[in-house]
Design a protein around this nucleic acid. Structure first.
Length: 816
DNA sequence: TGGGGGCTCGTTTTT
DNA sequence: CGAGCCCCCA
C-alpha cells in the first residue's frame, strides 16, 4: 500500500476512516459514493495532493474533471494551498474546458482552425434560425429551439447525423437539418458545446497515436459529480482510461490510468438534460470496480435535517443505498409553515428573515430555495418592500448580456471574418442602414457562391452594397489597427470604432450597458494578468500540451520535496501532431473569446453585499447555508406537475427535494401555500406529498390554527377555513404547543404507517361535466375533481368568471 | 427600419 | 400575470 509511504503526512490528518481510505486508494478503479456534506471536494483534492506528494504521479499524469468552472477553480485553489506544486501541468477543469484544450492542441487533426470559436446556446439558436430561413424550413413544424435541443441531444449521445436512426418523415427532416447545421458550423469555423465533447471523443477514438499518448499520460483520472455525466462524457472517460472499444482486444490496448469516480446517485437532478445516473452502475460493471467507498458522515447539518433527508429519499426505489449520519446532535426541529396565499407566504418569509437577522444571522447565510424561477417574483417584491437586501441567482450572466455579446461579435470577426453568426449580430448594430432586404440579398449571394457573408459582400450591388462594403471595410481597418496591440487596447479600440460606445451614450437606457462594456475591458485585463495564460486551459501555449509529465514543473522535483526517484519521468512517446513543432501560442484575443464562451461569468447583480440568497433548488446544489427556506411545497409545483406522470420523474423530484433539504446547516423551514397566483389565475394547491415522507419527530408545525381564510381571499370562493386546513395538522385548535405531525394528526399518530392522502372516494357527489351554480360566480361546468374529504376541490368553468379551482368543503355549490 | 401593440406560453440548466 | 416573440404600421 502506498499509504505507508507517508503515513504521517499532514495531508491525511483529520480525515475520517472512509475519507482516508478514499484518499489513499491504490491505483485501481474506484467508485466513491459521497453523500451531501461528506467532504467530497476535500477527498478529491487531498487524493491528488497525496498522489503527488508520495511521488506516485507527477502533475502531468493527473486528469481531474468537474462540471462547473466554479468546482474546477475551487479544486485548483485548494490544491495549490495544500502543495507547493505548479498546477499548470495538471489537466483540471470542466469537461468542456478540457476538450477545448485538447482540440486547440490538435486542431489540425480535429479538422478545425486553430482559432475556432465556441457557440454558446444563444449563438447556436441563432445559427439554426439562420439555417432554417436559408433552407425554407417550416418553423411551425420545426421550431428552432426544438431543433437545437435535438442536435444537442444527438451529440450527447455521440451521434452524428448519419448515425441517427430515422423512423418517420419528421425525423428524416430533423436529421437533414442536423447535417446542414454541422456543415454550416464547419464552414464558419465554429463549434457548439456538444461539438467540443463529441469531436474530442472522435479524435481519441479514431487516432490511435493520440489516444495511446493520453492513455499513457493520465495515470490518475478523477471525476467529480459522476452522477451528472451523460453518455458521451462517460464514453470519453472510458476512451481516455483505455477501457474503450478496443480494450478487450488485449494486445493493442494500452494500459490506461486509474479512474476514481465520485458521485451521489441521490443528488442526480439533471436527467432532463441528458445525465445518466446509470453511468454509475455501468462504471462498476465495465471497469470491474472492486473498491467502493461510501462517505456517509455528514459535516454540515444537524440530525433533524439529516433525518428528514434520509427518510424522504428512502421513498425512492432505485438507489445505490446510503444514509447520512452526523455527530452534531439533533439540533432544531424542521419548521413547517402553511400559508393561505403566496403573498402571505412571502410576508411570513420576510418577517422570519428579519427576525433571524435581528437574532444575529448574516443575510448571506440565509437562502430561499424554490422549484421554479417564477416563484421568485412574489418573494422579491416582499423583500424589496421590506427593504431587505437580496440577491437572485440565475438569469443573464455577464458574458450573455446583449451589449457584451455585441462587443464579442466584433472581436470574433477580427479573428474570423467568416463567423456568420457574429456577422449577423452586428452587421446592423449599431444601426447603419443595413436592413432585412440588404441582408437577404447578401445571404442569397453567399449561399449561391458557397462563401461566407463577409466574402459575399463584394458582389452586392447598389446602395445595399455600398453600406455593406463600408461595414466590411470598417472591420478590415479595425483588424489592421488592432494588430500588435494588447488585449485591452484592442477592446477599447473596437468599442470606439464599432460605434457601440457612441450608440449606448445616446441611448437613454444605455448607462448600465456602458458600464458593462467598461467592465468587459476590466475582465480582459484581469484575464491577461491573473489567469496568467496558463492557469486557464484556453491560453496554454500549444507546445506545452501533450508534453512529458515533468515538462511543466517549474522547479526541480527535489525543491518541491518530491523524491526524484519515484517520479515517472520517462519521456512519453513522440506524438506526431504538427502543432507541437510550431510552438505557436494562441493569441490573447482568441484565448479571451474562448474564456468568454466557456465561462459565462457570474451574474454580478448585488454581488458582494450581505444579501439574502434566492435561487432554484437546482442552482443550490453544492452550496450550503445556515438557514434554508424551501417554499412552495405543493403538489404540482414541487413535485412539479410535468414530472409526476412517470415514476422516474417523481423520483427525480424527490432527489431534488433531498438536495434542497441537505443545503441547510442549522435551520430548515418548509412552507406551502393553500392558494397561489399562477399564470394569472389563483390556483388551489394541496400540500406536497413530500411532507408525508418526512419523519414526524423532526418536524415542528408553526402555522397558527384557524387563521385560515377568514381574512378574506379576494376573488376566491371564500376559500378554506381552518377546519379544512389541508388536513395539515392534527391537534387542531392547539397551535401554541405546536409540535406535532405534519399530516395525519394526533388521533391517527399510532395508526398504520404513513398513508398517502386519499385521492379517491369523493363524498360530494360531483362529477365532471355537471352544471353547477355558485352564489358569487354564477353558473359553471365542472371540469375536474381532485382530492377527497376536506381536500376535495373542483375545477369549474364559470360562464361569467372563467376557470376556477374551488374547495368543496367551503364553496357553496348547487347542482343545476 | 424600428418601435409598439398584440399574441402565446408558461420546469429545472451548465458548458 | 408578465416575458418574449412576431408582425404590422408609421
Amino acid at each position: 500500500m502506498f499509504s505507508e509511504v507517508a503515513p504521517n503526512s499532514p495531508l491525511l490528518q483529520n480525515l475520517n476512516p472512509e475519507q482516508l481510505a478514499a484518499v489513499t486508494l491504490p491505483a485501481t478503479h474506484a467508485l466513491i459514493l459521497a453523500g451531501a456534506g461528506s467532504g467530497k471536494t476535500r477527498v478529491l483534492t487531498t487524493r491528488i495532493a497525496w498522489l503527488l506528494q508520495t511521488g506516485q504521479v507527477s502533475p502531468g499524469g493527473i486528469l481531474a474533471v468537474t462540471f462547473t468552472n466554479k468546482a474546477a477553480k475551487e479544486m485548483l485553489a485548494r490544491l495549490s494551498a495544500m502543495l507547493p506544486v505548479n498546477v499548470r501541468g495538471m489537466w483540471i477543469g470542466t469537461f468542456h474546458g478540457l476538450c477545448n484544450r485538447f482540440l486547440r492542441a490538435h486542431y489540425k487533426l480535429a479538422n478545425l482552425p486553430q482559432s475556432f470559436q465556441i457557440l454558446d446556446t444563444q449563438d447556436q439558436l441563432s445559427a439554426i434560425k439562420r439555417l432554417c430561413k436559408q433552407f425554407n424550413v417550416d418553423d411551425e413544424r420545426f421550431p428552432p429551439k426544438q431543433l437545437a435541443w435535438f442536435i444537442a441531444a444527438c451529440k450527447e449521445d455521440g451521434q452524428r447525423a448519419k448515425d441517427v436512426p430515422v423512423r418517420d418523415e419528421e425525423g428524416r427532416k430533423k436529421v437533414e437539418i442536423y447535417a446542414l447545421y454541422e456543415e454550416q458550423c464547419q464552414r464558419e469555423g465554429v463549434v457548439d458545446f456538444g461539438e467540443l465533447m463529441l469531436r474530442s471523443y472522435e479524435l481519441l477514438r479514431d487516432n490511435a497515436a493520440v489516444r495511446e499518448h493520453y492513455q499513457r499520460r493520465f495515470r490518475h483520472i478523477l471525476i467529480d459529480e459522476f452522477q451528472d455525466t451523460n453518455k458521451l462524457q462517460y464514453a470519453w472517460i472510458k476512451m481516455l482510461a483505455g477501457q474503450g472499444p478496443d480494450a478487450a482486444q488485449g494486445a493493442s490496448a494500452m494500459p490506461g490510468g486509474s479512474v476514481v469516480a465520485v458521485g451521489d446517485d441521490d443528488q442526480s437532478i439533471y436527467a432532463f438534460r441528458g445525465a445518466r445516473v446509470g453511468n454509475m452502475t455501468d462504471f462498476v460493471r465495465e471497469f470491474d470496480v472492486t473498491h467502493q467507498i461510501k462517505l456517509e458522515r455528514n459535516y454540515r447539518s444537524f440530525g433533524n435535517i439529516l433525518d428528514s433527508a434520509n427518510e424522504l429519499i428512502s421513498h425512492n426505489s432505485k438507489r445505490l443505498g446510503k444514509n447520512l449520519r452526523t455527530e452534531a446532535g439533533p439540533g432544531e426541529p424542521v419548521r413547517v409553515y402553511e400559508s393561505t396565499s403566496d403573498f402571505a407566504e412571502a410576508q411570513w418569509f420576510v418577517d422570519e428573515v428579519k427576525q433571524l437577522v435581528r437574532d444575529g444571522s448574516a443575510r448571506k447565510d440565509i437562502a430561499l430555495l424554490y422549484r421554479s424561477n417564477a416563484q421568485s417574483r412574489v418573494m422579491e417584491t416582499a423583500l424589496f418592500n421590506a427593504g431587505v437586501p437580496y440577491r437572485v441567482y440565475g438569469g443573464l450572466r455577464f458574458f450573455e448580456r446583449a451589449e457584451i455579446k455585441h462587443a464579442l461579435a466584433y472581436l470574433r470577426l477580427l479573428e474570423n471574418p467568416h463567423d456568420d453568426t457574429s456577422f449577423m449580430r452586428v452587421v446592423n448594430f449599431p444601426p447603419r442602414g443595413i436592413g432585412a432586404r440588404s441582408i437577404e440579398q447578401l445571404q442569397d449571394i453567399a449561399r449561391a457562391s458557397g462563401c461566407s457573408l463577409h466574402d459575399g459582400v463584394s458582389a452586392v450591388t447598389g446602395k445595399a452594397g455600398a453600406n455593406l462594403g463600408a461595414f466590411v471595410a470598417k472591420l478590415d481597418v479595425l483588424r489592421e489597427q488592432t494588430s500588435g496591440l494588447t488585449l485591452r487596447e484592442i477592446i477599447e479600440l473596437v468599442l470606439q470604432h464599432s460605434g457601440l460606445e457612441e450608440h449606448y451614450k445616446t441611448e437613454k437606457e444605455g448607462q448600465d450597458r456602458l458600464e458593462n462594456l467598461a467592465e468587459l475591458v476590466n475582465a480582459a485585463e484581469s484575464f491577461v494578468s491573473q489567469e496568467g495564460f496558463g492557469r486557464d486551459a484556453v491560453a496554454m501555449p500549444v507546445d506545452e500540451l501533450g508534453a512529458g509529465p515533468n515538462s511543466t514543473l517549474t522547479q526541480s522535483p527535489a525543491s518541491q520535496g518530491l523524491d526524484p526517484a519515484t517520479l515517472l519521468d520517462e519521456p512519453l512517446p513522440e506524438l506526431l501532431v504538427p502543432d507541437r513543432d510550431t510552438g505557436e501560442t494562441l493569441s490573447p484575443l482568441v484565448a479571451f473569446l474562448t474564456h468568454a464562451a466557456l465561462e459565462s461569468g457570474d451574474n454580478q447583480a448585488q454581488a458582494g453585499q450581505d444579501a439574502v440568497q434566492l435561487m432554484t433548488v437546482h442552482s443550490s446544489k453544492g452550496l450550503e447555508f445556515d438557514c434554508v427556506f424551501i417554499a412552495g411545497l405543493e403538489e404540482g409545483l414541487f413535485p412539479h406537475e410535468n414530472s409526476m406522470s412517470d415514476q422516474g420523474g417523481l423520483e427525480e423530484e424527490r432527489r431534488l427535494m433531498y438536495v434542497a433539504i441537505t443545503r441547510a446547516r442549522k435551520r430548515l423551514y418548509l412552507s406551502h401555500s393553500q392558494t397561489r397566483m399562477l399564470h394569472g389565475q389563483t390556483r388551489y394547491n394541496l400540500k406536497s406529498r413530500f411532507f408525508d415522507e418526512l419523519p414526524e419527530a423532526a418536524l415542528k408545525w408553526i402555522t397558527p390554527r384557524n387563521q385560515g381564510f377568514a381574512s378574506g381571499l379576494g376573488t376566491s370562493a371564500g376559500g378554506w377555513n381552518g377546519a379544512s386546513n389541508s388536513g395539515a395538522g392534527g391537534g387542531r385548535g392547539d397551535w401554541a404547543s405546536s409540535v406535532f405531525a405534519s399530516k395525519s394528526g394526533s388521533a391517527e399518530r399510532f395508526a398504520s404507517p404513513p398513508v398517502p392522502p386519499q385521492r379517491n372516494a369523493p363524498s360530494h357527489g360531483l362529477k365532471s361535466g355537471m352544471e353547477v351554480f355558485h352564489a358569487k360566480f354564477g353558473e359553471g361546468k365542472v371540469l375536474m375533481l381532485e382530492g377527497s374529504g376536506d381536500d376535495a376541490r373542483a375545477q369549474i368553468n364559470f360562464t361569467r368568471h372563467g376557470v376556477k379551482w374551488l374547495a368543496l368543503s367551503v364553496a357553496k355549490l348547487t347542482v343545476v
